[in-house]
Amino acid sequence: MVALPSADLKSLVDAARQGDRAALDDLVRATYGGTYTLAYRLTGNEDDARDVVQDAYLRAYRGLRRFRGDSQFTTWLYRITANCSANLLAKRARTRTEALSEDDPVVDIRPDSDPEQRMAGEDERARVVSALGILPWRLRQVIVLRDIYDLPHGSIASELGISEAAAKVRLHRARRRLRELLAADFGDGMGDSEESWDARAS
């Protein structure tokens, strides 16, 4: 991935808005790695990430004239990506008869589905990544957008098509579930075992 200074990115955006095809291609190349990474984190798999990215760039291309230069181009692109991802996953959930709700038990669709077993031997970061990967997608999305990409609640709500209050509630629920999944790795507070708490309490 080519990491460009934001001034260079801005001039590419300006040129692409004027219809400069080469600038558009350069703009895609410069932002592709970041957009794909976000799409992958949101969808949790390569095939969906590819579809989401393709959809997102197409929409960005068609809406480029509407892009307001005073906001960051990457932020704008990430919001489109979040929206495309939410649409794709919602459509998929609707077509599945046994669509999972947020409160259904966590199901790991990958092979070797015992999270604790798989997490053993991985370092702390990898455990967080794994836990995020096995969160139900509705919960994963809010964590990714808020805690990784630092999007404001309002932007998250509008891209996911829910109210801001609902987005906040979903974020609380997502964080609880993530914490729950990481209980074995991040301790239960003071880093003591429950036995020692029992002993102290008595």
Binding site: G33, T37, Y40, R41, A49, R50, R125, V129, I148
Partner: peptide
């Protein structure tokens, strides 16, 4: 993780 890319 914000700064860790996943290879497309």
């Amino acid at each position: 993780m914000r700064h860790e890319g996943i290879s497309p």
